[in-house]
């Protein structure tokens, strides 16, 4: 896969509006993250790896679909780095590529249950597909 040929750290910084150099690597974001155990890379690692240009690993990781967008990392960050925005930028960079939608309308019927609110479907489609 040649993802990093097209997506650079600068792209992610531009899309997210995040300045990873503000991070002091205290790990409070990852200490706050409710999805920590589900994620291969954790919020502080997204910041550190973008800083170091290790984009390919992040784009290939399922961690980008495990972020709940709960904004706990963003709220509690002492340096206003906003890791959630960076994770979203990586996800967006992946799903904007041809054929990279993580979830499509065809996947929905099997996921439906009686109580599932429209909000869940719209949210998931917005998060997981173009």
């Amino acid at each position: 896969m040649s993802l990093t040929n097209t997506v650079t750290a600068e792209d992610l910084i531009r899309i997210s509006g995040v300045d990873p150099s503000k991070c002091m690597q205290c790990g409070k974001c990852s200490g706050a993250c409710p999805s920590y155990d589900e994620m291969e890379y954790h919020p502080h690692q997204f910041v550190a790896m973008v800083r170091k240009g290790q984009i390919e690993k992040l784009m290939a990781s399922d961690a980008i679909y495990q972020c709940l967008s709960c904004f706990a990392c963003l709220e509690r960050c002492p340096r206003n780095v906003e890791p959630a925005k960076l994770i979203e930028a990586v996800r967006v960079a992946v799903i904007r590529q041809q054929g990279m939608n993580h979830m499509t309308a065809n996947d929905i019927p099997e996921k439906l249950d009686e109580k599932l609110p429209q909000q869940a479907i719209v949210s998931a489609m917005r998060k997981y597909s173009k």
């Binding site: 409070k28 974001c29 200490g31 706050a32």
Partner: peptide, 9 residues
């Protein structure tokens, strides 16, 4: 026990 990292909650 020194733990390098911060508490989230």
């Amino acid at each position: 026990d020194y733990i390098k990292g911060m508490v989230g909650k």
